[in-house]
C-alpha cells in the first residue's frame, strides 16, 4: 500500500472511532468489529466488518453507519462495506 493510501486508512480508522455500538456504548474500532480497511490511491475503500452477534437486528444499521462515516472522510471516492462472521467475533477481540 502506498503511503497516501496508508494515511487514508489511518484517517478512516480515526473517523470510525465516532461510530458507537448503541448496545455496548463503545466505538466499533475498539470493540474489534472492524476486521480490515483497504484503500487505493484513487480513494476506493473496502471495509470488512462484523457484529458481536450473528443475525443481530442492529447489523444493517451499523453497516450503514460505517459506510456513511467512511464516505464522509476527505479523498474517499467509493466505499464498499462487507459484513462477515468469519472469523466469529469473540470478546477477546476488544481492545482494553
Amino acid at each position: 500500500m502506498s503511503s497516501k493510501a496508508a494515511t487514508l486508512v489511518e484517517r478512516i480508522r480515526t473517523r470510525l472511532k465516532d461510530v458507537i455500538d448503541p448496545e455496548l456504548g463503545r466505538d466499533v474500532v475498539s470493540l474489534g468489529l472492524i476486521y480490515e480497511v483497504d484503500a487505493t490511491d484513487a480513494g476506493v475503500v473496502h471495509i470488512s466488518m462484523t457484529t458481536t452477534t450473528i443475525g443481530c437486528p442492529a447489523a444493517v444499521f451499523l453497516v450503514g453507519a460505517v459506510r456513511f462515516a467512511t464516505a464522509s472522510v476527505t479523498d474517499v471516492k467509493h466505499v464498499e462495506v462487507h459484513l462477515t462472521h468469519e472469523p466469529r467475533w469473540t470478546p477477546e477481540m476488544m481492545s482494553v
Binding site: D18, V19, I20, P22, E23, G25, P57, A58, V60, F61, L62, G64, A65, V66, R67, F68, A69
Partner: peptide, 19 residues
C-alpha cells in the same frame, strides 16, 4: 425502540445509547 427511532440515522447524527 432504539432500532426504530435511531437505527436509520446511526452514524449520521449523534444518537443516544440504548441505555
Amino acid at each position: 425502540t432504539w432500532l426504530e427511532c435511531y437505527g436509520p440515522v446511526l452514524g449520521r447524527t449523534p444518537v443516544p445509547r440504548v441505555q
